[in-house]
Write a protein that binds this DNA or RNA. Structure first.
Lengths: 194, 194
DNA sequence: ACAGAACGCTACGAGACCGTATCGTCGATA
DNA sequence: TATCGACGATACGGTCTCGTAGCGTTCTGT
């Protein structure tokens, strides 16, 4: 990890991205204005336009900036890896600022193609993590070869996303474990607890 | 069902509510404007303000107008009643116009208290339907008495909502059945199919 | 120390919306 | 058919937001 001293330009850019993310989390994409971003960041509106062509690309970059890739374990235990996977992706997608931005982003993504691609890419990536875990289990023989992987991922991810976005409750580690255990019960996968 | 001929005032009001719902479904709550509602509905902007105090009130009433209560069966079969319940609530909430409005509504509900109450009331009502079905099953002895009803509802509703809102795919009857069967598998409830 | 690049500040025109006022027109009802 | 309530059309002031221009100021690297 090479840390370079940020240039003046880089500092301004980062302040703008930060303020944008904050603002989107607070008031949503539609109500986020360049003027308010300028106020919050302390960066002049003129300078903002020197960095970003429009509000749309700014929002896209701001979202991109606060997205990170969770680390998923590979222990050989389907249950443990699934819990690691969904705990990680939940934290990455629904904790902190990004979590507060999510509903507004998904709404805006319905109309803005660029934002749509970003959200879809993120969803696909999250699903791929889970898919990989499941396919490893199939390869080990822990799951039947004809299991509907796509359905399985939906059964696991759905309750967590629903809890966060619709019920607006925190996704606890206990909930993740409960969801994983219940869904795996159908496939007679032994659980460590219980 | 008593059908009265609508008065001129009622026709105008209905046209406005209709146009509002259409517009919210298309461009979202934030981008819905009174001027455009006037254009679409053919009702003068002046008249719109004679009926509705503000855009917020109008949106709330428009949403309310296209919300209906699904009928849930009570056959004595947990599986069949759950499928009926989730199939019905899914159709009521996520098919047609209301489905297209949902993301934007949920986003706007984060900031608008009135809209927040409306969305929450709807969510609670949907969950109550499922809760009733489950509690009847517990009373019959089809489910253990200490079952976590709240978790169970989340496990059932989550994948369906996630499929619609996040993946933006249709919620088929097959998916509903698959979700119900998988979740019930943990409680060793016999399924009719399989 | 000295350019040149990058930033801050102020101001501006253009356009979109809001909510209201005014006045002419239509339509249900007696 | 006369009347009054409800609607339609137009226009308006006010506000917000966008994106840009002009110009002075502050960094940064040499």
């Amino acid at each position: 990890m090479v840390e370079t001293t940020p240039t003046r330009s880089e500092r301004a850019r980062q302040a703008v991205l930060d303020a944008t993310a904050d603002l989107v989390a607070e008031v949503g994409v539609e109500r986020t204005t360049i003027d308010e971003i300028a106020n919050r960041s302390g960066v002049a509106k003129t300078t903002i336009y020197r960095h970003f062509a429009s509000k749309e690309v700014l929002v896209v970059e701001a979202v991109h900036a606060c997205t990170y890739i969770p680390v998923v374990t590979d222990t050989g235990s389907l249950r443990d890896d699934l819990i690691s996977c969904f705990s990680g992706t939940t934290k990455a997608s629904y904790d902190g600022r990004l979590g507060d931005m999510m509903l507004s982003l998904m709404d805006a993504a319905q109309r803005d193609p660029e934002l749509g691609r970003l959200v879809r890419a993120q969803t696909d990536q999250r699903r791929r993590f889970a898919t990989n875990v499941i396919e490893r289990a199939v390869a080990r023989g822990d799951l039947p070869a004809d299991v509907d992987v796509d359905l399985l991922v939906t059964l696991l991810a759905g309750p967590l996303v629903y809890t966060k976005l619709v019920r607006r409750q925190r996704v606890t580690d206990e909930l993740v474990a409960a969801v994983v255990d219940t869904v795996l019960a159908r496939y007679a996968v032994p659980t460590t607890t219980d």
